[in-house]
Amino acid sequence: MTSAAPKIQLMNVHKRFGHKVVLDGLNLTVGKGESVVVIGGSGTGKSVMLKSVLGLLTPERGSIKIDGEEVIGLGLAARERVMMKFGMLFQGGALFDSLKVWENVAFGLIQGRKMERAKARDIAFEKLAQVGLTAEVGELSPAELSGGMQKRVGLARAIAASPEIIFFDEPTTGLDPIMADVINDLIIKCVKELGVSALSITHDMASARKIADRIAMIYKGKIIWDGPVADIDKAGNPYVDQFIHGRAEGPIKMEVKV
């Protein structure tokens, strides 16, 4: 299941906020060129897991390795070097609203990789075309775009610097079913064409089935099931069954009380 040198390897990762334990010994690996989707309800630690890998949060215990290199506790310069391998599509797009669309896409090239503006601009428009956006859109500001278009720009920005690993944070949340499928297709296309490793988190099962090679389910800060996408329906795990069929009744109790 895992190749010799996994692209991302999380081992026994623990993270808590005050008394609230969010990650409780999480283990997960993403192989080279593999697309792993982590499913799970709200508040189960999906986002915290992604942010821990990105170094936006620091886990208390455990190990996170990128290409076999431990990244917890890396210094500033080393962290920036590792970040060069990443692209990320944020849930809300997280586009910089003070910049034009093409400047958003070119941001990582200009600021992160010190590319000349003119050259970065050409690449930005090329990437925009890849996600099906015209050159006119590139001159607009992000606030003028619809939610689906913002997601596409976010995707173009994530792939602009040719990353080795892309994270997708709820890529289809808040989109209509057709636009969601368009985004799914774009994700598959980008991942396949670039040959990158992808780690996505979602609670949209249609999207998960479509973009995943492997699905892992997170519950209370642990991975409770992990297997190829084809096996998910015969997982025989009551938690997974409840989640993929969207039943209110089952072993997972929603914490309605805040």
Partner: peptide
């Protein structure tokens, strides 16, 4: 606003401090 819309996190992922 940049913080709550994750734009600051996005800066980090684009190798910008």
């Amino acid at each position: 606003t940049m913080r709550v819309t994750e734009q600051i996190d996005a800066l980090v992922t684009l190798s910008t401090n």
